[in-house]
């Protein structure tokens, strides 16, 4: 998933909508919501265009669905014997004997 960019207006519009919920929230829920926004704010950076940027969620952090993973498992196997391998030493210096 790519990074998520946003403008100040988009955030203000979202805050306006969320504030409409405030009357339905308990004191504890209100505090929890503020804590989530505060935590999210720490993740935000600003790009060259002046937009806010949320980093993309890390792979493996749990975003994949069971179906995605099952599909990956089905396609994971490729037959074929391991080719012989080894490390070729790099020749340093003059080996010509001249």
């Amino acid at each position: 998933m790519a990074n998520l960019t946003f403008t100040l207006k988009e955030i203000e519009d979202l805050a306006h909508k969320v504030s409409a919920l405030d009357q339905f929230l308990s004191k504890k829920e209100h505090e929890l919501l503020l804590a989530i926004f505060a935590s999210a704010a720490e993740q935000v950076t600003r790009n060259k265009a002046g937009r806010g940027v949320f980093p993309a969620p890390q792979q493996g952090a749990g975003s994949a669905t069971l179906e995605d993973l099952q599909q990956q498992l089905l396609k994971a196997y490729i037959p074929g014997n391991e080719p012989p391998h080894g490390i070729n030493a790099k020749i340093i210096g003059d080996v010509s004997g001249s």
Binding site: Q59, G60, G62, S63, A64, L69, Q72, L73, A76, Y77, I78, P79, G80, E82
Partner: peptide, 8 residues
């Protein structure tokens, strides 16, 4: 044969 797994 080889299995390749990514991410989760």
């Amino acid at each position: 044969g080889t299995y390749t797994f990514e991410g989760t």
